[in-house]
């Protein structure tokens, strides 16, 4: 820094030249980023204040936002979405930590085998995976009813995806299996990076396995946990594909989520402004959740 201050004229020219070449390198990426990420975001925010339908485009201030809170179905969707997040995030995080901790010390081949297996539902894709789940949950030919009736746990067949009491839980189970792949990969990497000398020191001091885990490993994988919690939260809030493929929000709105309702309003009813207002609301909630998690994670250090 002080060197630059000594030769201001030259450094200014240097900065200008560097800036110009930097932006030339950034240009292609920025065209795509601004064009197809920033502009839609701005449009989303702006149009959320308009009554924006096929034939209408009038400014209504916070009208869409007020309508949202009076909308019974939106409230159901919000409740379901929060239930999904509250159930999925802790279970995904805890389970993937357990799997990660169980396999990270295994032989490289075994470790990589398990990592692949748990990633398989993600790679296979929601659409192909949902085909199988749809069959498993089927009332007449499905695997669940066959097994549960065969073992005498159930007396009569259940239409799992067609029953208000079970449909959302079925979705959460599938979401779980398609969500743990990435966290496991991250935990395996993070646990492998924990300083081994610290672990050895603790073991020499006579710490039990559990103590070593909570005192040494857990704090050092905290950033990974935080990242996993945040990405799982974002993904769970945006749960859409499984619902569109399996239940269409039904029965009786029992699997309605905010994301599904946004697209129902925007693409089935052409209520673009209203859909965008809900989108902004969802973005704000996700931002608040992420901020709380970040704060909690940092104060833990």
């Amino acid at each position: 820094m002080s060197k630059i201050n000594n030769v201001p004229a030259r450094s200014k020219a240097l900065v200008r030249r560097e800036t110009r070449s930097a932006y030339l390198f950034l240009l292609p990426a920025l065209v795509f980023f601004i064009g197809f990420v920033i502009i839609p975001m701005v449009l989303c925010l702006v149009t959320s204040f308009f009554n924006y339908t096929m034939g209408d485009f009038t400014f209504i201030g916070f009208g869409n936002y007020i309508k949202m809170f009076q909308d019974e179905i939106f409230r159901i969707a919000l409740k379901n979405t929060i239930l999904i997040v509250v159930v999925a995030v802790p279970t995904v995080t805890a389970f993937s930590l357990w799997v990660g901790a169980s396999i990270y010390k295994m032989h490289a081949v075994t470790r990589s085998f398990f990592r692949c297996i748990f990633y398989l539902p993600v790679v296979t894709g929601s659409v192909a995976v949902s085909v199988v789940w749809k069959w498993m949950f089927n009332k007449y030919t499905g695997l669940f009813n066959t097994v549960l009736m065969g073992t005498g746990i159930l007396d009569e067949k259940i239409s799992w995806l067609g029953d208000e009491r079970f449909a959302l839980w079925c979705i959460i189970i599938i979401l779980f299996t398609t969500s743990i792949g990435q966290p496991i990969v991250l935990y395996v990497a993070a646990l492998g990076n924990v300083d081994p000398s610290q672990i050895e020191a603790a073991e020499v001091d006579g710490a039990t396995k559990l103590q070593t885990f909570w005192k040494i490993k857990w704090p050092s994988i905290m950033p990974t946990t935080l990242y996993i919690v945040i990405i799982t939260t974002i993904n769970s809030f945006q749960c859409y594909a499984l619902i569109q493929l399996l239940t269409s929000g039904g029965p009786n709105h029992s699997t309605e989520t905010i994301m599904y309702y946004i697209y129902y309003q925007a693409f089935k009813l052409n209520q673009y402004g209203y859909g965008n207002a809900m989108g902004i609301f969802l973005a704000i909630i996700i931002a608040i959740f992420s901020a709380i998690q970040l704060k909690a994670g940092q104060s833990n250090d």
């Binding site: 990420v37 920033i38 839609p40 975001m41 449009l43 149009t47 974002i234 945006q238 965008n276």
Partner: peptide
């Protein structure tokens, strides 16, 4: 760039389709 990454990208699909 960081802020954009933290936002849910599915939310902007309605305006993106219009664009």
């Amino acid at each position: 760039l960081i802020c954009a990454m933290a936002l849910p990208k599915q939310v902007v699909l309605v305006p993106l389709l219009k664009e």
